[in-house]
Design a protein around this nucleic acid. Sequence first.
DNA 1: TAGATTGTTAATCGATTAACAATC
DNA 2: TAGATTGTTAATCGATTAACAATC
Lengths: 217, 217
Amino acid sequence: MSVTSSREMVQRLSNYRSVLCKLKALGFVKVFSDNLGDALGISSSQVRKDFSLFDLTGNKKGGYQVDDLIGKLNVILGKNTIQKIIVVGCGKIGTAMMNYNGFSRESIKVAAGFDTDPTVINPRGLIPIYDLSDLQAFIKKEQVKIAIITTPESGATRVQDLLLESGIQGILNFTPVKLKGSESCVVHNVNIEQEIENLFYFVNEMKDGSPKNPNSE
Amino acid sequence: MSVTSSREMVQRLSNYRSVLCKLKALGFVKVFSDNLGDALGISSSQVRKDFSLFDLTGNKKGGYQVDDLIGKLNVILGKNTIQKIIVVGCGKIGTAMMNYNGFSRESIKVAAGFDTDPTVINPRGLIPIYDLSDLQAFIKKEQVKIAIITTPESGATRVQDLLLESGIQGILNFTPVKLKGSESCVVHNVNIEQEIENLFYFVNEMKDGSPKNPNSE
DNA sequence: TAGATTGTTAATCGATTAACAATC
DNA sequence: TAGATTGTTAATCGATTAACAATC
């Protein structure tokens, strides 16, 4: 166990799980590496390789048991317990995150929001919103591991400092500031402007008559 | 010109530009590949390699001219013209996108929003919101190239079909449905649940006593 | 049994890094 | 000139794919 795994690999594990759940809903009991590869647009070799790295075994000739795979992937991805997260910065994007429906389905629960603006603070809401000064105490008391940062750009690094001090281990950062990860904390930066910029690059490149890299995700 | 470029590469070009603008603001006139590498946490070899692929030349011994680099990167990344985009799905996340301040700075302009809910439609707003039935006519008339999809999950594929028919060439998809790109349209999927799931995996892995892959972004 | 599929090893591919000649 | 930095080529690294023996 405990494999050195890249981000792409974990992404694929998530995708396998997602497809398998759909197949299960359709009544599938077993599945072949070929099926999964087709569904995700990757090679069957990759599927088998990934599985073997995580000791997800099948039967020669018989393929893989859907239920069994989902169960094991749930353990690997930690989907069996509810994962608490907090949202720091309750502006438009932050509020959207707090009310995001998709989370519950994936056993993710937003435990609280934090902001500095007194007019948005509301400790009695369905999801309470506290003052930023309560952030560190909350994290420690509730043992929160993961935070989403949706503050204005100017607040990003200060908030990261606060989070690191309180022992947060994972950050999803939506501000345009590129935050750096460390030994004790993984950071994923989602830079929306840059995503758009990136798309425009490929679109313009296509126009030049060189249809390159039409890759997804 | 016209280099085969991966997504990571374009991401780096964006990052170079961003750092260079900051350096310029600090009064830098020239910069070495070493400086840029340090700033972005990559090797100086990589910086020089990237630059040489895009004919961004410097002077042996003298480094690179900041102004010159920014100018050339602006051309490569298409930052000299305002880039029109539209937002399909004006719920919480969609509205946040429409009002996102970061866009103007990057010369990105949201030309319109689209939705099916009559109560949110407002063709006279600062950024007009039209009925989804007006989508295709608008795209053709305004020659929009790029769209953000922020509909509920159930609407994602239908909207993609509409967009492709109208000739959209780039899509930034925030729904949990994984949309596939094609020859004529590049798709970037941002799956928020999956980002969180991914973070939890690494956090749990750390706990296991194997501090792997603490990489950013 | 014959056919099909896994699990794993070897080959390939692409991207990053190291090294160094050119040269300012 | 001596020292430093680019630009490019070669070496390395990691991830993906192909191939195939094992076997159900």
